[in-house]
């Protein structure tokens, strides 16, 4: 090996080491800066974003969806709460994604699982779901989600039944939902509906982290369901309301109190429903005005 080659090799090794050493630091700096903002694309009007995507609307929508999921994932991973402004940003990004590819299902699911359950932005999510219903005429799920929101969150049985009937008319609607839609007006247990809804979501979720997130919520609803059934049985047998959940164990209606996976304490409300002080939200995410 001659002198010149050796020199080139030395410079190459030095340069490679130098740039490789900067990679973790650079990633850290960029992540910190990027964490403060969600896509620049949010500021672009939806119509312009659509036209600007040219013939690559599909992958532009996919990329933005990945960005929205990363944005949420980073915050969940760091146990960071989203500010009201950040929720608005996420909502605007989802609007953008669905205006580029209106039949793309993932953004609607993110709106339902995050905007509704975590941020209480039900009106915004419902607007997106109505858009989904228009662009996915073959799919029962947009109306199913809308029906669930009306019934579970708004306590609007009539509105919820209307949406579930529309969902039941779709060819891909599962049978159990059809029968549920038919007897919804008589159906008084919204916890059971919540369990069905989450089981359905988990069944068709491939991503491990999302499955774990939904499974935890399902576990909490199942615990609430067990407790509510025990409270009803207690009232029926003893003709009085239990003072607390421990009474259910003392009187032999339950062997043990199922724990709240979110770490809250169970409270029996006057109407016999179970409330948890965790409000089904992770401790670090809890906000004073958090909706159930």
């Amino acid at each position: 090996m001659n002198k010149s080659t050796l020199l080139t090799l030395a410079v190459f090794i030095l340069a490679t080491t130098a740039y490789a050493l900067t990679i973790p630091g650079l990633s850290q700096v960029r992540q910190e800066r990027r964490a403060e903002q969600i896509s620049y694309f949010v500021e672009v009007p939806p119509q312009l974003a659509k036209v600007g995507s040219l013939e690559f609307k599909g992958i532009v929508a996919d990329y933005l969806m990945l960005e929205a999921m990363t944005f949420m994932g980073e915050r969940i991973g760091q146990n960071r709460d989203l500010s009201a402004e950040e929720w608005q940003h996420l909502h605007r990004l989802l609007v953008k994604i669905t205006s580029i590819d209106p039949a793309f299902w993932d953004p609607y699911v993110l709106a339902e699982t995050m905007l509704v359950w975590q941020a209480g932005m039900m009106d915004e999510a419902n607007e997106l779901l109505l858009n989904a219903a228009r662009h996915r005429p073959w799919d029962y799920r947009p109306f199913y989600f809308l029906g669930f929101n009306s019934f579970y969150f708004k306590k609007d049985v009539v509105g919820g039944a209307k949406y579930l009937r529309q969902a039941a008319r779709k060819a891909n609607c599962p049978d159990y939902l059809k029968s549920l839609a038919a007897r919804l007006s008589l159906y008084g247990n919204e916890t059971a509906l919540g369990i069905l809804f989450l089981e359905d979501l988990i069944r068709e979720t491939s991503q491990e982290e999302s499955r774990a997130y939904l499974a935890k919520r399902l576990e909490a609803l199942r615990a609430i369901h067990i407790l509510e059934k025990a409270v009803a049985e207690y009232g029926k047998t003893l003709q009085k309301k239990p003072a607390g959940v421990t009474d259910l164990v003392k009187q032999g209606f339950l062997e043990e109190i199922p724990p709240d996976p979110y770490g809250g304490d169970w409270v029996i409300m006057d109407n016999g429903r179970i409330y948890t002080t965790s409000e089904l939200v992770e401790k670090k995410h809890r906000r004073p005005a958090q909706k159930k």
Binding site: F56, F104, W105, Q207
Partner: peptide
């Protein structure tokens, strides 16, 4: 496509057609 939640077929096809 494995990074996404549900529309896995759509993501795969998006990339292939692009």
């Amino acid at each position: 496509s494995g990074l996404f939640m549900r529309d896995i077929a759509k993501i795969t096809i998006d990339f292939c057609l692009a």
